[in-house]
Every structure is written in structure tokens, then in C-alpha cells.
Design a protein around this nucleic acid. Sequence first.
DNA 1: ATTTTTAATATGTTTGAACATACTCAAAGC
DNA 2: GCTTTGAGTATGTTCAAACATATTAAAAAT
Lengths: 243, 243
Amino acid sequence: MIHEVDPNSKVPLHNQVERLLRMLIRQPEYQKGAFLPKEVDLANQLGISRNTVRHGISKLVNEGLLVRKKGVGTKVASRKVSTRLDHWISFSGEMKAKGMEVANYELKAQPVAADEEVAGVFHISPGTRLVKLSRLRGTQEGPILLSLSWFHPRLGITGEEDFSQPLYQMLEKEIGVYPTVSREEISAIAAEKGLASRLEVREGAPILFRKRVVFDSDGKAMEFNKVYYQGEGFSYSIDIERK
Amino acid sequence: MIHEVDPNSKVPLHNQVERLLRMLIRQPEYQKGAFLPKEVDLANQLGISRNTVRHGISKLVNEGLLVRKKGVGTKVASRKVSTRLDHWISFSGEMKAKGMEVANYELKAQPVAADEEVAGVFHISPGTRLVKLSRLRGTQEGPILLSLSWFHPRLGITGEEDFSQPLYQMLEKEIGVYPTVSREEISAIAAEKGLASRLEVREGAPILFRKRVVFDSDGKAMEFNKVYYQGEGFSYSIDIERK
DNA sequence: ATTTTTAATATGTTTGAACATACTCAAAGC
DNA sequence: GCTTTGAGTATGTTCAAACATATTAAAAAT
């Protein structure tokens, strides 16, 4: 049962709708996946316009709390995943340790021309050919992260290597290069359209963005990596010691 | 000069508006702070409804690319800030090193009763009195972060200490406790209403959220800290070595 | 039994209009 | 010169309606 809105309140109706929904979705049935009341039913029940109801709903959709599907309905969005920031254990290894089966939604290695950013990282000329690895990964419930890696041309990576195995294991065994230091940059960004559709989140959803350069044991840059994690469903943990 | 929308296109009009705006805001004048064309002017120019224009604009607003102010206008949002994740240097020290003057928008230390989360972190009973420090900090341009700290009661912090000085310096000198390890959890979340208004971002904006427990040299939890950074305007950097 | 078609469903898009409200700036008053 | 008031400005809110569209399920056809 949903409550009412107060048409005489100074709080805009769409904000009141938003509040009601935030309380509504706490109910176990919705947490478990039941469909929320239909827009038109909410509108009739609350005595307000369907578009005003939609306005309120879109707040929670924008926050990734709800997902909508035309012809189907609206429901509470799924739950979180976390990983250790400072672990070098592979993503799939860590997810397996948590009892989650990793799925590769996309796995593609292909030669590309280095753009200015990649060229700057590796100190090579823009346009230089090198291999880019693109992986869309997650669990049975859906994608969690999009990882893009570029490899320094000196590694001699061709794109024909077996990238289905753990990446650094492959680099050590087949390329003979030892990843040693990772220089990271972490921020929160809003998903633009292309990224949003690949990660199956709404446009503008918070994305945990990790950009890093991996150096080998000689201190030379070997991999440039960008990873986009679904924001709401993901967190890093790390222990930092004072020096 | 703005382009047109194609009413016969399969792409929804509001998406076309969004695209046009993404291109429009690249122009230097808008990057420098000029107001975008008014909604009603865009609507007339494009031959579509003002609400459809608003729908398109709200996409960029939701992403933090644009900011709107009633009675004033719409303009491109401001730029980023970053800090080292693994540095113990104070926020104000680091900003000063970057030539940015830190402003404290809010600084409040007060005794509170520990809620369940805080109690769980410190292994004390819920309801136990301890001191909570709340700081809203940023630059002259506006707030960047909201930091909330709770201190273990055994430290004997009263709330009367001088919190305007660097926190850990104060803890060492006046309390005699030495912060040594920080156990961190980092994620991207969407700003809820209260947080959004304090950080002056839109509701739902991506927020870089850092939750950590700081331990002293004896390995005992001394501080529980939550920091919310404006997502778009902030990033961490860190170097991680393989063990 | 399987495939195709159709209808129902619920969200998605767009509209024009009217009104509300926060903000700015100029004019008026002290 | 300073403060208050009022008008104008541009975004914010709400509406009811009509139509579009992706999805699902049932009915019809094979």
C-alpha cells in the first residue's frame, strides 16, 4: 500500500513521489524482484498526472535504484560487487573466490592505431600499431565492468594470444614480461551513452573509473588499462600503511 | 549557431537535442562560462516543444556537464580536482601545493551517540557517546568534499580540540595517538538529496565515496571516516606495487 | 506440437499551455 | 549612499491527452 501526496505541500509533487518510492522499494517483495505498481495506477492512486509520477520514478532510475522496461514494468535494480584494489589476483579468480561465476560478455583483441592518449603513455608516435584488448565482464546477472587494455608494441603481442586465460599469467608465460607496478587513477564519472548500453546501466549512472599504467620489472610501461565499473554495484577496498 | 533536429528521424527528439548540446558546449565561449541559448529560444529554433528541449538538457545536467539556475540560465559546469589516495598529507596541504586555496564551508565537532554502523566498527555498544567531526571543504569555486569522522571514545576526544589544524597533526600532538594504517573502501554512488545540496551538485550526480577505518600503531581502530567527493570534479591517483 | 500472428500491456515520447519560483537588476524610497 | 520594492527573466512544475514502441502472452494457423 502506498501513501498519498500532499498537493498543498511546498514540496514538488515529483519529489513526494520520489520519497514514497524510496520507502516503497524497501519492502522485501520489491527487493526480491517484484514489479512496482504501474505508472498509470500510481497516478490514479495519488491523484496526479502520470508524467509527474514518471518524473519521480526517473530520479530513482537515474540513481540506478530502479530499472524500467517498456511493455514489462519497473523493478528494483540488482546488488553490489566489490574487489580488492591492491590485489593482483585476476578478476575472475576473485569472483570465483566469492562464489560468483564470471561471464565474458565480450572478449576482443585487435590491432589498432595508437591515439594521442595511448601514444603519450607509451612515448610512441600517434598512429603506431599495437594491440588493444577489450573485455566486457560480469556475472550471470549481467555485466559489471568494461576493461580496455593497450599493450606496448615492444612486447610483440600480436592479438592471436590466448586472452581467455588470466592476463598477467599469459604475459609472463608467453611474452616473458613481469608486471610489477601499477600506477592508478580512480574517479567517479557519469556513464555516457555507449558505455551505458554496454554495461546495461542508465545514461548518467555513476561509474567507478580506473585508469592505470602497468610497468614491468625494468620500470618500463607495458600496459595501459582503463576499467569502467558499474558504480552502484561495485566498490574497491584497500589497506594503506603510513610510511 | 545550432543545427536542426529531424522530426522524421527514428531517434527521439530529446536524444537529438542532447547530441546537439554535446556539440554546442564544446565551443570555447561556453567552456569559458557563457550562458547557453535559453530553453524557449532553442525550442522555437528547433521547432519542438520546450519540454522536449528540457528533457534533452536534463541528460547533460544529470551527467554534471551543465548546470541550470532558475531565473538565470544554463551553463557548462566547472572542472576537476585530484588527490593522492595513498598520501597522508592533509587535504589542505595538498591543495595548497597545487596552488588552490582551501575553504572550509563547514566545520563542526560534536558529541553524538554511536549508531549501529559506527558501533560495529569500534566494537562498542550502540548509543555510546563519542565525537563526530563534520567538514565540508573545497576551494573558492565551491565545495569539493564532505568528510565525516567518528573517533573511538578511548581517545578521550571532547569536541573542544582545535580541528582547524591538520587532523592527524592534532591527534599526534594533543591526543598522543599515531595513525598508522588506513583500511579503505572506495566506490561510486549517486548523490542523494541532502548530500547533493551540501556539495552543490545535482541529485543523482556521481560521487566518489571513500569509507575507511584508521588504525593506530597498536592496530586498534581509532577513526572511522566517510568522505564524499564530487564525482566529476575529483579523482584519486595511487601507485601499487606487486608483492 | 510448433510457428506465426495478434492483442494486450506498460513504459517511452511529445505537445502546448498555464502557472510557480528563484534570481537579477533597475527604480523608488529613505 | 543604502535599502526596499517591483518588474522582468529563465528555469521549474504540472497537466491531460495522444500517440509510439518494446515486450509478453494468448490465439490462430500450420
